[in-house]
Design a protein around this nucleic acid. Structure first.
Lengths: 245, 245
DNA sequence: CGTTCTCTTGACCAGCATCAAAATTTGTGG
DNA sequence: CCACAAATTTTGATGCTGGTCAAGAGAACG
């Protein structure tokens, strides 16, 4: 394992952990495909780091020299248009891999939504590791397939669903994203702001707020705290999300 | 090579070709990663088939037993919502691979837009081939990365761009998709209907038509024939597409 | 507590959808 | 090749969903 001492770099504070063998996120990440016998090598390449809430991991346009595995917490990924319009490309949680879609530069900015820990790898190191450990490449391909399927579902949402359908779909999909914080049945934790949800769903924050209010009025969801909802009528919500007539 | 005689099956007409070694689409497809020495094996697994315009390749919900490589022509991929709303997931051309994002069932319907030829592989066969020929898996992973990047760009388009910006982006992106029919500079061939473009861009066919008319009035594009446009002011169109203020 | 930030709600507006009809293109049979 | 029918595209009139602007209500933080 790589031990790093001294003052943290400008945007990231490295820390020490128990190593890959003890990583709580490993079962949910592509690292699960690396056999125990090779964990030392993975450990040697992994640079553990952590970010405080709202700290950036990288910016749109930065050279994409690293790939990452999230070990805890959550990140938002977003793109900006020249006039300031923002599109939130995704919310990432423990087990998620960053670097599948990258060319020479990052096309998104990544920022912590809450305290985050992650492993950073040099891209070249990771490519080499993939050459030697095929299962890793297979795992990445499988993950890419799932992301493509998710992307397709989201394009349907953005292209053809109404505001209320989008919000309903969002509430149904979100709980599955954070494996380290398994919510009770119907529990939905919203670590992001209304504005971020809006930019993720192609709406405005006012519309998101109005839709949530409507769902509460309908009795489909109940507000436990500001950022914790509870789905009361999941079947009805599902029908709404799929656009059943 | 597999030689198939007799009457064609209900929706597909198999045919004979010169084999992989002579395939015009190979340089643009994942097959390019298979070394010449192994082309016999690829040939043996590939089932050559062709579709007439508007014939389906598979339907949403069918068991996803096969993957495909398009060797010529073009396909549309779409999903339907229960009430009939349609989302066109993509237009595919020579060199494109179908089957990256598939789980047990196809999530889209695939139909020919014009006469199409393609190679069909049993998924299990293809998986086995990948196990032996790693370069193939690497090529698929690379392709998946590109598709993810494209999906991200399209989600930005669907989530945050105005109608005219979407149409402008579409006209700029489309020509790069068909490697076998390299258009002259500024030439844009539209093998799909206005309705299909609309369902691809999250608009209605009337809005697409109005936007095209506006671009013509502005002198940004000129109509050569109904399905052949010519971009006259590419810089202006690019600015429009990116939402430069 | 008071300041600040986020969320909610309301009033109004604009962009795109819907509905409808005319124009153009495509296909067919003579 | 022309005439007619069917399909697609274009254009116009009108309406609705969701955006914009603005004010007030809760939370969060010092």
């Amino acid at each position: 394992m790589l031990e790093l001492k001294g003052s943290p770099p400008d945007c990231a504070h490295r820390r020490e952990t128990g190593g890959c063998a003890f990583c709580a996120a490993r079962p949910f990440s592509v690292c699960a495909s690396v056999p125990d016998a090779d964990l030392d090598r993975l450990d040697a390449l992994a640079e553990k780091m952590s970010l405080a809430a709202d700290q950036p991991l990288f910016h749109e346009g930065d050279p994409a020299d690293h790939v990452f595995n999230i070990t805890s917490g959550s990140l938002r990924l977003y793109q900006l248009m020249p006039d300031g319009r923002r599109h939130v490309a995704g919310f990432l949680f423990a087990g998620d891999f960053i670097g599948l879609a990258t060319g020479a530069d990052y096309v998104c900015t990544a920022e912590a939504m809450e305290p985050v820990t992650l492993c950073r790898f040099r891209r070249s190191d990771y490519a080499e590791l993939m050459t030697d450990r095929r299962e890793l490449e297979t795992a990445l391909l499988s993950r890419a397939g799932h992301e493509l399927a998710a992307a397709r579902a989201r394009m349907l949402l953005l292209g053809r669903k109404s505001a209320i359908e989008r919000v309903a779909s969002f509430l149904l999909d979100l709980p599955q994203s954070d494996p380290l914080r398994p919510t009770g049945p119907g529990q939905v934790r919203l670590p992001m702001t209304r504005g971020e949800i809006a930019d993720y769903l192609g709406l405005t924050l006012e519309t998101v707020s109005r839709c949530l209010s409507r769902l509460k009025r309908n009795g489909m969801v109940r507000q436990v705290t500001l950022n914790d909802l509870r789905v009361e009528r999941i079947e009805a919500l599902r029908d709404l999300a799929e656009g059943a007539t």
